[in-house]
């Protein structure tokens, strides 16, 4: 009954057209989201320490003279990961990569938070 009703409304070609349009809308939404750039903020002990571009592959070692934390944040293909940490539980390293705004990785023992936030500017001069 339901199928018959659908057939009454749509012919095969119409359904194809609808599918094509739906795919176009989904693709548009995906690309629109990607161009709404985000960046990764790295907080150490509650203080903003670094900001990285989420669309630029990079590796940040926090074992510097200023921080001396044995933890590495890696940004690859639009996702941020904690790829190394000397913490005992390694929950941060086991966390999935974060890419969307609000995404969060926390390393409690090292007091490090990796957070995806919306990019505040459209371009830099």
């Amino acid at each position: 009954m339901k199928n018959k009703l659908l057939k009454d409304i749509f012919k095969k070609g119409d359904i194809l057209l609808v599918l094509v349009l739906v795919v176009a809308v989904i693709l548009t939404a995906v690309f629109a989201t990607r161009t709404a750039d985000s960046f990764v903020e790295i907080y150490v002990d509650g203080v903003l320490a670094f900001q990285l571009d989420l669309l630029k592959d990079t590796t940040l070692d926090l074992n510097t003279t200023s921080y001396k934390i044995d933890l590495i944040v890696t940004v690859k293909s639009g996702k941020a990961y904690v790829t190394h940490s000397d913490c005992p539980d390694k929950l941060c390293v086991l966390s999935s990569g974060v890419s969307s705004v609000g995404g969060l990785i926390v390393c409690l023992p090292n007091k490090v938070v990796v957070k995806v936030t919306p990019k505040e500017v459209d371009a830099i001069s």
Partner: peptide
């Protein structure tokens, strides 16, 4: 919204 680049190394982008 346009950012002006840091002329020296900085924690901010």
């Amino acid at each position: 919204t346009i950012g002006i680049g840091n002329p020296r190394e900085s924690a901010t982008p």
